[in-house]
Computed example of a mutant assay.
Amino acid sequence: MVHVGYAAPRAGVPAAASFRRWVEAALRGAKRRRATELSIRIVDVAEGRALNRDYRGKDYATNVLSFGADLPPGVQLPLIGDIVICAPVVAREAAEQGKAPRDHWAHLTVHGVLHLLGHDHIIEAEAEVMEALETRILAGLGIADPYRP
C-alpha cells in the first residue's frame, strides 16, 4: 500500500496513481514479494530544506529523502518507511539535465524505494549495483537510463 500526500502545489506533480505504479515497479524489480506499505510526501523547498538539515545536517533542499521505518521489537507490520520528494528541486533538476519531468519523478521514486529496501550508493561498488537495478526497473517502465549522459 502506498500513501501519497501533497504538501506543495500540485502543478507539474504526478498523480498518486503514477507514484503507486513506480513503487510497485521498484518492489518487483528488487524482488520484494511480501506485503509492503510506505508513504510518499511531496514537499516544497522550505520543508525539504528543514528535513535535510534536521536529519542529514545539510542545509539545502535535496530531491529525495528516505526514512526507513524504525518499528519497536516484536511489531510485525508491512511498513518500510517514508519517502519525501521536493517538487521544486525535481522540476529544476529535470530542466537542468534535459530530462522529461515525469521520467525524473519516476527515477527519484524508484531510488527512494530502493533506499528503503536497504540499497545505498555511498560505496562505489554498492552504487553500481543500485544504479544498475534502478536502470533496469526504469527500462521496464519505458524510461531511459538516468545515469547516461
Results as ranks from 00 to 15, higher is better:
V2N: 03
V2Y: 01
V4P: 00
A7Y: 10
G12E: 02
V13Y: 05
V13P: 05
P14I: 02
P14Q: 03
P14N: 01
P14M: 01
A17F: 00
A17W: 02
S18G: 08
F19R: 01
W22C: 06
E24A: 14
E24H: 11
A25F: 02
A25H: 04
L27H: 11
R28A: 11
A30H: 02
K31D: 12
R32A: 07
R32D: 00
R34C: 05
A35L: 12
T36N: 06
E37G: 12
S39G: 15
I40Q: 04
R41E: 13
R41K: 11
I42G: 03
V45H: 09
V45Q: 06
A46H: 06
R49E: 09
R49L: 06
A50M: 10
L51M: 11
L51E: 07
R53H: 05
R56D: 00
G57D: 04
K58E: 11
K58C: 04
D59L: 04
A61L: 05
N63W: 06
L65Y: 03
L65Q: 13
F67R: 06
F67S: 07
P72K: 05
V75Y: 08
L77T: 13
P78F: 05
D82C: 06
D82G: 08
V84Q: 02
V84D: 00
I85Q: 07
I85R: 03
I85W: 02
I85P: 00
V90A: 04
R92H: 12
E93D: 09
E93T: 10
E93P: 00
E96C: 01
Q97I: 00
Q97N: 12
G98N: 11
G98T: 10
A100H: 08
P101Q: 01
P101T: 04
P101S: 02
R102W: 00
D103V: 03
H104Y: 13
W105P: 08
A106Y: 04
A106G: 08
H107T: 12
H107W: 13
H111M: 08
G112W: 07
H119G: 11
D120S: 15
H121Q: 12
H121R: 11
I122R: 15
I122Y: 14
I123F: 15
I123M: 15
E124Y: 14
A127S: 13
A127P: 05
E128M: 11
V129P: 08
V129I: 14
M130N: 14
E131D: 14
E131R: 15
A132H: 12
L133C: 10
T135E: 00
I137F: 10
G140Y: 06
G140F: 06
L141W: 01
L141I: 08
I143T: 03
I143R: 04
A144M: 05
D145G: 04
Y147H: 15
R148L: 14
P149A: 15
P149V: 08
